[in-house]
Every structure is written in C-alpha cells, then in structure tokens.
Amino acid sequence: MSPRVHELPTQAVILAGGQGSRLRPYTDDRPKPMVEIPGTGTPIIGHQLAWLAEEGVTDAVISCGHLASVLERWLAETELPLSTRTVVETEPLGRGGGLKYAAAALPRPDEPWYATNGDIWTRFPLREMAAFHAERGALATLALARPQLPWGAVRTDDFGHVVDFIESPTVNFEVNAGVYVCAAEFAALLPERGDHERTTFPGLARQNRLAGFPLPHGAYWRAIDTAKDLTEAARELALPRDRPAD
C-alpha cells in the first residue's frame, strides 16, 4: 500500500526521555516534560497533548527514559484528550535513535506523523504546517523559530561609537523549533543510535527533501531548558495578548 502523503497526520511522537540536568532541582523527582510552568496548572507534556489533540491527533507515542515511571503514572491517572502509549529506552539511543524507536510503535506506520521534543512550550497551527509539508513533497519538515537572545545587544556605528542598546532582541536567523512533520518513509531513514540532526537531516537537505516551516507571526514558542526559562515563560504567558492563542 503506497503512503498517503497528502492526508493530515493523526498520530505523533513526543521525545520525553531527557534527564533535564540544567533544570535541577525541578527534575530531581520528575522527568523534564513533567515540570510545570508556574501559573499554567499543567506540566509541559499536558500542554503538548492538549495542543496535539486540538490539531487532530488521536494517538501519541511518548518516548520515556529518565524517571519514566513518574510520567507513566501521571498518564494513567490523568484524563487525556487522546490515546497514549509509552516506550522506554533501556539504554540511551540519542535523539535520532529515540525517535526511530518510538516511531516503530505508531499505530499507523503507513501514514504521516508529527514529532515534538518534550520540553517545548508552543502553540501554532499544525495543520498549516502539515499542508506546507505536503505541498513541498518533503520527507520531513521542521518548524523554524526566531528566538530572543537572553542578553541585551549593543548597536554601534561604522566608527565604533555605541548608538543604541536593545534588550533581548530577536535573532536574525531561524532555529530548529523541535517540532516536525514526517512522511511515513522518514522513520526508516533515522539512525538506530545518534542524532538525526547530524545524520538524516543533512542528507535530506542535500536531496531537497527537507523543508522548513517558519512559525506564524505572533506564535508563542519557548524551549524549557533552565530554571530561568521557567520564570520567563511564566511571565510571558501571563502577559495580555493582542489576539487569542491559536
């Protein structure tokens, strides 16, 4: 049966196995995706599952590692908006290997799928990203974000005089936002061990089979890596927005 590349994905993989060492002490007793941004009332993975369900996902495979039992217990005790299954790495496989291992548990292997890192707090229209992916005939599409620098920037003139200070400017280049749309065939191209960003992605880019979807203007995105990220995300999410979240 040939892959149905133009249909919207209804299944997803969440990579939730990292140790989150830079988030200690929050991750001393829970995996990184189980950390809650203050004021939200839900762990990061709870937000991700709700977002995926709103975008039409019915099944999610969650790749666990560090303190997997804590995450599995939360999943079992929580009323969820979609069906979930966990897979646990018995040894570290790297991000690419972990993604391949989890993708093998997807319920519909002949259909496209989403993937997301378990430490991403974002909200944007995944259906638009999936349509962008299909239009370009890509094997994988990355969401691209323009993050803000954590420091203030200094602007100088050609002679070297300081002319301005800019607080936490948005960078001029795009970064991998940690959210993907994947064709069914993409899983077979992932490494058994290692990082797909160093192996699979460069190869697909050379073949023009890798696409990049810029996050829509105003879409919120933040990777939660440190305690400072938690504090800043709580402050940002509490700010009034010009329009309702997607």
Score class of each variant (00 low, 15 high):
residue 2 S to A: 14
residue 5 V to I: 07
residue 6 H to K: 10
residue 6 H to Y: 04
residue 6 H to R: 13
residue 7 E to A: 10
residue 9 P to H: 05
residue 9 P to C: 09
residue 11 Q to I: 08
residue 16 A to G: 04
residue 16 A to R: 01
residue 17 G to P: 00
residue 17 G to E: 04
residue 20 G to T: 03
residue 21 S to Y: 06
residue 22 R to D: 15
residue 22 R to I: 02
residue 22 R to N: 12
residue 25 P to A: 01
residue 25 P to V: 03
residue 27 T to V: 10
residue 34 M to G: 01
residue 37 I to L: 12
residue 39 G to D: 12
residue 41 G to T: 10
residue 43 P to C: 11
residue 44 I to V: 15
residue 51 W to S: 08
residue 52 L to E: 09
residue 57 V to K: 04
residue 58 T to W: 06
residue 59 D to K: 02
residue 60 A to V: 15
residue 61 V to Q: 00
residue 63 S to D: 00
residue 63 S to A: 11
residue 66 H to I: 00
residue 67 L to N: 02
residue 70 V to C: 00
residue 70 V to D: 04
residue 71 L to E: 04
residue 71 L to R: 02
residue 73 R to K: 15
residue 75 L to P: 07
residue 75 L to R: 05
residue 76 A to M: 05
residue 76 A to Y: 08
residue 77 E to F: 03
residue 79 E to Q: 14
residue 80 L to S: 12
residue 81 P to C: 10
residue 82 L to K: 11
residue 83 S to G: 03
residue 83 S to D: 12
residue 86 T to I: 04
residue 88 V to D: 01
residue 92 P to T: 09
residue 93 L to V: 09
residue 94 G to N: 05
residue 98 G to S: 15
residue 98 G to Q: 00
residue 99 L to T: 02
residue 106 L to W: 00
residue 109 P to K: 02
residue 109 P to H: 01
residue 109 P to D: 06
residue 111 E to I: 00
residue 113 W to R: 02
residue 115 A to E: 08
residue 116 T to H: 03
residue 116 T to P: 01
residue 118 G to N: 03
residue 118 G to V: 01
residue 119 D to F: 07
residue 119 D to C: 10
residue 123 R to A: 13
residue 125 P to G: 09
residue 128 E to A: 14
residue 128 E to Y: 01
residue 128 E to N: 15
residue 129 M to I: 09
residue 130 A to H: 07
residue 133 H to Y: 09
residue 135 E to S: 11
residue 136 R to E: 00
residue 138 A to H: 06
residue 139 L to K: 04
residue 140 A to L: 05
residue 140 A to N: 02
residue 142 L to A: 13
residue 142 L to T: 10
residue 142 L to G: 05
residue 142 L to W: 06
residue 144 L to C: 09
residue 146 R to N: 09
residue 147 P to Q: 01
residue 150 P to S: 08
residue 151 W to I: 11
residue 151 W to F: 14
residue 152 G to L: 04
residue 159 F to M: 11
residue 159 F to N: 11
residue 165 F to V: 13
residue 169 P to T: 10
residue 170 T to L: 10
residue 170 T to F: 11
residue 171 V to C: 09
residue 171 V to G: 00
residue 173 F to P: 01
residue 173 F to D: 08
residue 174 E to M: 10
residue 174 E to D: 08
residue 181 V to N: 05
residue 181 V to C: 14
residue 182 C to K: 05
residue 183 A to D: 14
residue 183 A to I: 03
residue 183 A to S: 15
residue 184 A to N: 01
residue 192 E to Q: 13
residue 193 R to V: 15
residue 193 R to S: 11
residue 195 D to G: 02
residue 196 H to M: 11
residue 199 T to Q: 11
residue 200 T to Q: 08
residue 202 P to N: 11
residue 203 G to L: 06
residue 205 A to H: 04
residue 206 R to Q: 11
residue 207 Q to I: 04
residue 212 G to D: 05
residue 212 G to E: 12
residue 213 F to M: 03
residue 214 P to H: 10
residue 215 L to W: 03
residue 216 P to C: 08
residue 217 H to G: 08
residue 217 H to F: 02
residue 218 G to K: 07
residue 219 A to L: 03
residue 219 A to S: 15
residue 219 A to P: 00
residue 220 Y to K: 03
residue 221 W to L: 12
residue 224 I to R: 05
residue 228 K to A: 15
residue 232 E to Y: 08
residue 234 A to K: 08
residue 236 E to P: 03
residue 237 L to E: 12
residue 237 L to V: 12
residue 238 A to E: 12
residue 241 R to L: 13
residue 241 R to N: 09
residue 241 R to H: 13
residue 245 A to M: 12
residue 246 D to W: 15
residue 246 D to I: 10
